[in-house]
Amino acid sequence: MSKKFTLYMVRHGQTYFNIYNKLQGWSNSPLTEKGIQNAVDTGDKLANVKFAAAYCSDTTRAMDTIQIILDKNRASSIEKANPSMHFREEFYGYFEGTDMDQAWYLAGAPHGLPTFKDIVAKYSIGKAKDLLKEADPFHQAENNDEYWQRVDAGIELIKQNPDISDGDNVLLVSHGNTLLSLVERYGNGQYDISERPDNGSLTKLEINGDEAKITAYNKK
């Protein structure tokens, strides 16, 4: 029998690479003081929400964020989240740590699309992934298919958790582009995907068997 549950998806707190406008897919930079405060604020907002399970990307910025949120939660008995590489940000390959605008320029400019927003406006976030892999001299960045194989496996991992029952809430701390990608796929065009989700913001994904839909995006 399929279960219906709500995934409370939070973007990690602000990091130093966020300030410097660098791509930090699988690379890492620490939370800033503001980033820790992002997590504290989100933890306060979610303190009385009962979670049946908690997951996060296995990057320190996601693990540090979710630990602060779980420590503040009064309604659940979860002490630690389940970290998994399935919930990591897109892997940017050669462009890891590169200035964000420069990387997307190199991906899109050969196609007359000099910014990430230009690529998404003409095509999609998925196409942006394909173009970045194409521009990567090592071709190691994830393309759209590779990316979704990994993230879909993560969603499947959550669905198979026997501790999650019908009507439960599940906490997930992930990343900006990953949340955008999920909103593009499951938002039915109702949300502005030209706007990146804020650090510490909340996006909700309702999962019902094989169906999924976004019910809130980038809530502060």
Results as ranks from 00 to 15, higher is better:
103 A>E: 02
112 G>Q: 14
57 S>N: 05
80 K>T: 12
96 E>A: 00
5 F>N: 03
95 F>P: 00
161 N>R: 15
81 A>G: 05
212 A>E: 11
29 S>Q: 07
69 I>G: 02
35 G>I: 02
77 S>H: 09
69 I>P: 02
113 L>Y: 12
139 H>P: 05
54 A>S: 11
56 C>S: 15
216 A>S: 12
95 F>Y: 15
80 K>N: 06
16 Y>I: 08
134 E>R: 12
65 T>N: 03
5 F>V: 01
217 Y>E: 01
148 W>A: 03
76 S>Q: 07
14 Q>K: 09
196 R>M: 12
203 T>Q: 05
171 L>V: 06
60 T>H: 05
204 K>A: 06
5 F>C: 03
101 D>T: 08
162 P>T: 04
138 F>C: 08
1 M>P: 09
187 G>R: 06
4 K>Q: 15
79 E>T: 13
28 N>H: 09
71 D>A: 13
52 A>C: 13
127 K>F: 09
67 Q>Y: 06
189 G>K: 04
17 F>P: 05
69 I>F: 01
182 L>D: 01
217 Y>V: 00
165 S>Q: 14
184 E>H: 10
49 V>P: 00
37 Q>Y: 11
135 A>C: 11
218 N>E: 07
37 Q>F: 12
114 P>Y: 12
49 V>N: 05
205 L>V: 09
184 E>M: 07
136 D>K: 08
24 Q>K: 10
43 G>I: 00
195 E>V: 10
95 F>T: 04
18 N>M: 07
205 L>T: 01
86 H>I: 05
